[in-house]
Design a protein around this nucleic acid. Structure first.
Length: 221
DNA sequence: GCGACAG
DNA sequence: ATCTTGTCGC
């Protein structure tokens, strides 16, 4: 797929702040999506002592979840890990991997937060706004927000709250297993995001899309 | 000032 | 994120 890359990428939090502030106004958290035929998962791994970032994208058919296409890309790591600025470290290389796809996914599930972020602009929002496609943030751990205890059964969920507003949901993707932190990235509502993530999760805690991307991004050859 | 802190 | 084997529990 054709991608419009930003001219330059910031290398410090100070440079990233104004970009974050400008782009967050473009985030849409209402459903603005087509019928879903293809769901993609993206993830980033590191090589050579973190100096090289490697992104992987896995496109699965929906709702049968069969791998249809995959793409890998590597790039020099140009931004440090700073909580609140993860997207500036991972989105650049993700864009390069997406560019190699022949199938344009209808929605992308990201390994990280969507609006469940201090500035309401997590990785999934940043990626979604840049490529103007629906995205969901499905993180393995909490970043910000509080929530009530949730039932142990698969499918149960509780809203994630921060500053008095609902920023996402804590979702039990498998019975008796650590929950997932789901939040809208772009062009999708929280309710639709929760249902989509659950529909993409079968036998394991993580969505099949994320499992494929994780696996591909962590390979050394 | 003291913790917390996506990947 | 990543280094790493077997092992305990639902």
């Amino acid at each position: 797929m054709k991608i419009q890359h930003p001219q330059t990428w910031p290398e410090t939090a100070e440079e990233a702040i104004p970009i974050q502030e400008q782009l967050k106004s473009l985030v849409v958290t209402t459903d603005q999506l087509e019928s879903i035929q293809y769901v993609a998962g993206v993830d980033v791994g590191f090589l050579d002592n973190y100096t090289i970032s490697q992104a992987a994208v896995a496109v699965l058919s929906f709702p049968d979840l069969q791998l249809q296409e995959q793409a890998i890309s590597q790039r020099q790591t140009t931004f440090p890990y700073i909580p609140g600025f993860l997207s500036f470290r991972e989105v650049p290389v993700i864009l390069e991997a997406l560019e190699k796809l022949t199938i344009i996914p209808d929605i992308i599930i990201c390994d990280g937060q969507g609006i469940a972020h201090p500035q309401r602009f997590g990785l999934a929002c940043h990626l979604g706004v840049l490529i103007d496609l629906p995205t969901i943030g499905a993180a393995k751990s909490r970043f910000i927000g509080t929530h009530q205890e949730l039932a142990a059964e698969k499918g149960s969920w509780k809203p994630l709250i921060d500053g008095g507003e609902v920023i996402g949901a804590v979702v039990r993707s498998r019975t008796h297993v650590k929950p997932l932190y789901v939040s809208p990235g772009h062009r999708i509502s929280l309710e639709t995001a929760i249902n989509l993530v659950l529909q993409c999760t079968s036998k394991y805690r993580l969505p099949e899309t994320t499992r494929w991307a994780d696996y591909l991004a962590s390979k050394s050859d």
